[in-house]
C-alpha cells in the first residue's frame, strides 16, 4: 500500500467533507422545509425548523388529493416501464449475446446510436403519432417512449452479462434435457441477477424523474407524473411548505433504492458506459 502523509490525508478528508455538504445540503434543506410552517418559511428563513410541524404532510394526505394522484401516476408509469424493460431487455440481451441471426450487428449499432440521439428529434413525430391514434394523455402513451429511453442501456447491460457467462453451463443444461427457453429461464436468468438489479434500479430512477416526455405528452392532471406536475404548481401555488413536502416524498423512493443497491449500481453503470 502507498503511504500518505498526515496533512495530505487531512486535506483529502476536509475537501471531501465540504464537497459532500454541497451535495447533501439542498436535500436536507428540502426535508427541513417540509416540516416548517409557511410563516416560518417566508418570514424567518432559517435552515433548521424552529418548530417541527407536520402540517404540510397533513395537508397533502387530507386535502391534497391531486398530489396523491400525481404520486400514483408516477408510481404506475414507473412500475410498468421498469417491469416491461426487465422482460424485454433480458430477452433481447440474451438474443444479442447468444442467438446468431442476420442483422444482429446492424440492430445493435442502431440501438447504440439511439443512446446518443437527442430525444426532441423523435419526440415531435411521436407527439404527432400519439395524437393521431389517441394515445396522448394515456399511461401507455407515456410508458412507451419511456421504454425507448431506458431500453438501449438495459439491453446493453444484459448483453454484456450474457456474453461474459460461460456457454458450457448452458450446454450442460441442454444435455440434461433443457430446451433453449428452459435453459434461459432456469440457468441463465438467475445467474444474471446482478445485471437485472442494475437494469431495475437505473430504470427506476430514470423513469421516476423523467421530465421531458411527460411534459410533452401529458397535459391532464389525471395522467401527469409528479416530476412535471410540481413544476407547474411552482408558479401557481405559493405554499412552499406543501411543495417541499411533496418534493421530499418523491425524492425518498429513488434515494432509498439507490442507498440499498449503491455498490452494485455504481459498478454496473461504469461497466455499461465503458462498454458502450
Amino acid at each position: 500500500m502507498r503511504r500518505q502523509s498526515k496533512s495530505f490525508s487531512l486535506f483529502v478528508t476536509i475537501s471531501l467533507l465540504v464537497i459532500s455538504l454541497v451535495f447533501i445540503l439542498p436535500i436536507v434543506f428540502c426535508i427541513f422545509t417540509s416540516f416548517k410552517e409557511s410563516t416560518e418559511i417566508i418570514r424567518d428563513i432559517t435552515f433548521f425548523p424552529r418548530k417541527w410541524s407536520s402540517v404540510n404532510y397533513g395537508y397533502i394526505f387530507a386535502r391534497g388529493a391531486k398530489y396523491l394522484q400525481y404520486y400514483l401516476n408516477t408510481i404506475i408509469i414507473t412500475v410498468c416501464s421498469v417491469a416491461i424493460t426487465l422482460v424485454l431487455s433480458a430477452l433481447a440481451g440474451y438474443s444479442f449475446a447468444r442467438l446468431p441471426f442476420r442483422g444482429n450487428r446492424l440492430i445493435l449499432s442502431l440501438i447504440l446510436f439511439l443512446l446518443a440521439f437527442p430525444l426532441c428529434a423523435i419526440l415531435i413525430p411521436i407527439y404527432m403519432m400519439e395524437f393521431e391514434i389517441g394515445l396522448l394523455n394515456t399511461y401507455l402513451g407515456i410508458i412507451l417512449p419511456n421504454l425507448l429511453c431506458i431500453l438501449p442501456f438495459s439491453i446493453f447491460i444484459m448483453r454484456g452479462t450474457f456474453i461474459d457467462m460461460s456457454s458450457e453451463l448452458e450446454d450442460s443444461a441442454e444435455i440434461d434435457g433443457c430446451n433453449a427457453p428452459q435453459a434461459f429461464l432456469h440457468i441463465m436468468l438467475p445467474l444474471a441477477q446482478n445485471a437485472l438489479i442494475i437494469v431495475l434500479v437505473s430504470g427506476f430512477y430514470n423513469v421516476w424523474g423523467e421530465y421531458t416526455i411527460a411534459k410533452t405528452l401529458a397535459s391532464k392532471d389525471s395522467i401527469m407524473p409528479i416530476s412535471v406536475a410540481l413544476t407547474l404548481l411552482k408558479s401557481e401555488d405559493w405554499n412552499y411548505g406543501v411543495l417541499a413536502a411533496a418534493i421530499t416524498m418523491s425524492i425518498i423512493p429513488p434515494i432509498t433504492i439507490f442507498a440499498i443497491f449503491q455498490d452494485k449500481l455504481v459498478e454496473g453503470m461504469t461497466a455499461g458506459s465503458i462498454k458502450g
Binding site: 464537497i19 459532500s20 451535495f23 447533501i24 436535500i27 430512477y205 421516476w208 424523474g209 421530465y211 409528479i226 416530476s227 412535471v228 410540481l230 413544476t231 418534493i247 418523491s250 425524492i251 429513488p254 434515494i255 433504492i257 439507490f258 449503491q262 455504481v266
Partner: peptide, 11 residues
Amino acid sequence: IFMPIVVPASL
C-alpha cells in the same frame, strides 16, 4: 456525492 444522480432533476 453520487446521490444527486438519482434525484429527479425537475424537482
